[in-house]
């Protein structure tokens, strides 16, 4: 019998205090934006994802559903789930929740006594680091 093993192509260091679903969605999104997974790539099945990350299949299912809703994944009957050719949301939607996150980041940075220059430098470094994680 043929048995195809899909190793999940991204690693997750699970952190306490945060829902598992959110952590899986975040790790997958990072793999997409960094080019570690490209449009057309096969995404692991719910079962494979659960087995590989040692999470409940219902949790894996919720993560895949969220990624489909976000437009990152597409289901092709008979083929499986693949990474979509995603069109980023247009105009005002583009910023969406990000505005709140930037506000929180700025507040946290200020309360920790981090200068604007240091914050900018770290953002530039992290932005570049995502491109370096590309493994192809």
């Amino acid at each position: 019998m043929c048995h195809i093993v899909h190793m999940t192509p991204f690693r997750i260091e699970f952190q306490p205090g945060q829902p598992i679903v959110d952590q899986v969605v975040f790790a997958a999104t990072r793999a997409f934006v960094s080019g570690q997974m490209l449009p057309g790539d096969a995404f692991p099945s719910v079962r494979a994802l659960a087995a590989d990350l040692r999470i409940h299949p219902n949790t894996a299912h919720k993560a895949v559903q969220a990624l489909i809703r976000e437009g990152w994944l597409e289901v092709h009957p008979g083929i499986g789930t693949i990474v979509a050719h995603r069109v980023a949301p247009a105009g005002g939607d583009r910023w969406g929740l990000l505005n709140d996150k930037v506000d929180a980041l700025v507040v946290d940075a200020r309360s920790a006594g981090i200068s604007l220059e240091d914050l900018q430098r770290v953002i530039v470094e992290r932005w570049a680091a995502l491109d370096k994680t590309e493994v192809r």
Partner: peptide, 10 residues
């Protein structure tokens, strides 16, 4: 044991 539970869960 955990692998089997993950496999059967759901």
């Amino acid at each position: 044991v955990l692998d089997i539970l993950i496999d059967r869960a759901g």
